[in-house]
Design a protein around this nucleic acid. Structure first.
Lengths: 172, 172
DNA sequence: ATTGATTATTTCAACGTTGAGATAAAACCA
DNA sequence: TGGTTTTATCTCAACGTTGAAATAATCAAT
């Protein structure tokens, strides 16, 4: 059933129902996954633009915040980033290269394990992250302002449940 | 409040509360946006792998399904794809180039407006999309199987509301 | 009809990620 | 100690996207 009103996903499902009636009973996952995909795109674009205004790549922002929220001594290995950021090793190397050039982080060879490289937040990196993070949260609050706090809490609870179902229980 | 159990986002929020108590009251949007981001990554990876097993790029899959669900005569302009797929013009040109080489679509110069190029699904493209789509929906159903149909419906309703709030009401 | 503005697509260099292979160090085990 | 396996990072070519500039056709207005 495609309503006259609705979001883009309702329209897409309506198109499928008309074109492939044989699949009508199998379309229900699209309601969820299609919407999650669209929201992912929209939000990524939003946050990417926000970061770009401040001279940061999205991945670089990711490194900075991961590092700061990890707490003292504000250093993590490249491997830790790979897992936290869900990207490959080459991407981490490149990001750190760029950020080291900007003076936001520094590489510190681990004294114990000389294979490992600790990435440490510089004083400048700290400052940038501090102000950036506050603005970032304000921006996210703005994005959700019309949706509202109460709906946000309810939605968050359901999203948590889905993530747990999918096994996303760790940031290690 | 960071629970002992929970998903990755609960852990992240817990870290921020410890490291930046001054931001504690501003973290609520992360509950939603952080989770939407993670779900976007997870699902994209899942679907990308699924497409790759069948020799298709994610963007190519996007073109195929957009084309098929548009109904007869199964042709759209490059511009229509740009809007539907939320990507830039160069990306569309490249995708169509690759897919034309694979014999999945063909370019047809519009007889009326000779600036426009219609992208049309070939017979082979139709076949591929038909089988692919059925498997794709089965795959999505598998992903959501543990989450359940009822929770899916409830979650979908909230996601729709958020998308509408963000102005994502059209696929034109 | 001619000029100017707009619209549609393609081109292309820059960019970030991927992923396999290389390098190097540590851990394991005889 | 010596040899093998494992772990951590870096290297680098291939890949897809971005976004601005180029090309080409239509539309608008006089």
């Amino acid at each position: 059933m495609s309503d006259a009103s609705g979001d883009a996903v309702d329209a897409i499902i309506g198109q499928w129902e008309a074109e492939r009636p044989d699949l009508a009973d199998d379309l229900w996952p699209v309601q969820v996954i299609g919407r999650l995909q669209r929201l992912g795109w929209i939000l990524e674009k939003e946050i990417k633009a926000f970061a770009a205004e401040r001279g940061l790549e999205l991945g670089e922002f990711d490194i900075l915040t991961t590092l700061q929220r990890s707490g003292p001594p504000y250093e993590l290995t490249a491997g830790a980033f790979r897992k936290a950021a869900m990207v490959t090793s080459g991407a981490i190397t490149n990001r750190i290269d760029r950020m080291e050039a900007k003076g936001l982080v520094e590489r510190v060879r681990d004294t114990g394990d000389r294979r490992a490289v600790k990435i440490r937040l510089t004083e400048r990196g700290h400052e940038v992250t501090r102000t950036f993070m506050k603005e970032h949260l304000a921006n996210e609050a703005r994005i959700l302002a019309d949706f509202g706090r109460e709906d946000s809490e309810e939605l968050a609870a359901k999203l948590r449940k889905l993530l747990e179902t999918l096994g996303d229980t760790s940031i290690k």
